[in-house]
Amino acid sequence: MAENRGGRRLRLVSYGACLALVSLLGLAEATVRPAHAGGTLVHFEDPRFAPGTIVVRNGERRLYLVVGQGRALAYPVAVGKRGKSWTGQTYVDGKYVTPAWIPPAEVKRDIPSLPDRIPGGAPNNPMGIAALTLSGGEFAIHGTNRPDSIGRPVSYGCIRMHNDDIADLFQRVAVNTPVVALP
């Protein structure tokens, strides 16, 4: 579950809002970033997925944004730990900058010492700098305060990305973007 600093759910869907996010995060439109940031253009031919679809391949620990013509942007991700990863189809239902985090009941049950709410921007907030919430549950694609977790099965079902990568993906997708998670 994500919310903005003021406790209200914030939806950013316009191109101008995405540019504002890029500016807010201090990213120039054509900056040189670390090798893991911004996605890598890769060969991706799967006729099931239209351009603009986010495809998560849990087994590969990769997220793909299909761009078309047999190509996609690939990002390394952390996925759900054993028994916690999800597969299926959904869509992005919200976009949030520096979201607060409210631990889902299952996480709170497993780690009762967690606070009921961790403010956005706090060092112990696991959501990172931005989040794309997914319809139909308590899952999100979000940044992380634990970059060492990327490439591993560690979450309760959320898809974690490097903060630079979620900033890049955030500006490329809109609310209602289809998301498909595969084993």
Results as ranks from 00 to 15, higher is better:
37 A>K: 01
38 G>A: 07
38 G>E: 04
38 G>K: 03
38 G>H: 03
38 G>D: 04
40 T>R: 12
40 T>I: 05
41 L>Y: 00
42 V>E: 00
42 V>K: 00
42 V>M: 00
43 H>C: 02
43 H>F: 02
43 H>G: 02
44 F>M: 04
45 E>T: 14
45 E>N: 14
45 E>C: 10
45 E>Y: 11
45 E>Q: 14
45 E>K: 11
47 P>H: 07
49 F>Y: 15
49 F>T: 10
49 F>C: 08
50 A>C: 00
51 P>K: 09
51 P>E: 09
51 P>G: 09
52 G>I: 11
54 I>T: 06
54 I>M: 08
56 V>N: 10
57 R>L: 13
58 N>G: 11
60 E>Y: 05
60 E>L: 15
61 R>I: 13
62 R>I: 05
64 Y>N: 02
64 Y>L: 06
64 Y>K: 03
65 L>G: 02
65 L>S: 04
65 L>I: 05
65 L>C: 07
68 G>H: 07
72 A>R: 05
73 L>H: 04
74 A>E: 13
75 Y>G: 04
76 P>E: 14
77 V>A: 09
77 V>H: 07
77 V>S: 07
77 V>C: 12
78 A>S: 15
78 A>N: 08
79 V>E: 10
79 V>P: 09
81 K>N: 14
81 K>C: 11
81 K>T: 14
82 R>K: 15
83 G>Y: 11
